[in-house]
Design a binder for these strands. Structure first.
Ligand code: FES
Ligand code: FES
Lengths: 145, 145
DNA sequence: ACAAAATGATACAATTGTAGTATCATAATA
DNA sequence: TATTATGATACTACAATTGTATCATTTTGT
């Protein structure tokens, strides 16, 4: 039961780092240095975030990434859904097809309730809220996300 | 983000079916008929539940399974932990080792809070509570779990 | 004693999801 | 036109999930 995959984790860290940036854009290489992640992996994540509209990118020399959306408006669920698909706690599939009792099932109803509450809580977590409460490790260092 | 795997799902359905049983024991074959699951898969699940102490089994002719614990005392987390390991929403591993910012990380704190609440809710779901609210499909038929 | 009916124990296989790597194409700038 | 950046895409490695397949062991009834 893992709520957050590494893709999401890395993406959130990257988004925080970009959001804190004073410069207009920050390149993948700079982010690699700050975040200490494998470069190709981070690049793929950045490309995905760009495609999904959370980042703007500029190509060529002096290029890089910037937030396309204000940090207050990027929620944890946004990022999770990009990298992990729809936020569903229980699909109740039965050999690829939906379970036939899906409408009567009390367990399903209970899980769905929990799911709703979890999503509300996850939505309340934004890039902005993460940055604000952040502990400064060192001004030029990686942050505790 | 799947909270419940099929193992857990099947196990819960089986436990419900066993709990509802009037007979002393119910065999794997009978359960297969009621629950319409692949027999070898269900058998493995039943063996696991037995080893973990949720079921008692009797071998030989006329043998089968019965609950070892009252339905009120079997929680969804019990079953989940058997089949899915410890209930943790965010391990924050960084290439096998713990993330170095695990103690400062605000996101981690938030996720941990959510995790605690989810676990409380999952613990509140018991086999008994599932059975009570159950919809009768047909007396001899599979239940909507 | 023996066959039948049940579970116990294990080993194996298929599929999917996660976590990455590697390569080449394309665009912007100086 | 060389350099520095991202874009696109294909590939690999590993782990978890989702099963299947066999054979051994125990109990019961005849
Ligand atoms: S068993 Fe399928 S919805 Fe509950
Ligand atoms: S980034 Fe590791 S605990 Fe948050």
């Amino acid at each position: 039961m893992k709520l957050i995959t590494r893709n999401t984790d890395y993406a959130v860290r990257a988004l925080c780092c970009i959001a804190e940036q004073k410069q207009e854009v920050i390149s993948a290489d700079q982010l690699v240095k700050s975040l200490k992640m494998p470069r190709p992996f981070l690049r793929k994540i950045l490309q995905t975030l760009n495609k999904e509209g959370l980042l703007n990118s500029s190509m060529g020399k002096g290029g890089g990434f910037a937030l396309a959306v204000s940090p207050e408006k990027i929620t944890l669920t946004d990022v999770m859904e990009i990298f992990q698909g729809p936020t569903r706690l229980n699909e109740c599939k039965f050999r690829k097809s939906d379970c036939p009792y899906i409408n009567d099932c009390f367990l399903k109803k209970k899980i769905d309730e929990i799911e709703k509450e979890v999503i509300v809580k996850l939505k309340a977590i934004t890039i902005a809220s993460i940055i604000k409460k952040e502990v400064n490790v060192d001004d030029k260092e990686v942050r505790g996300l």
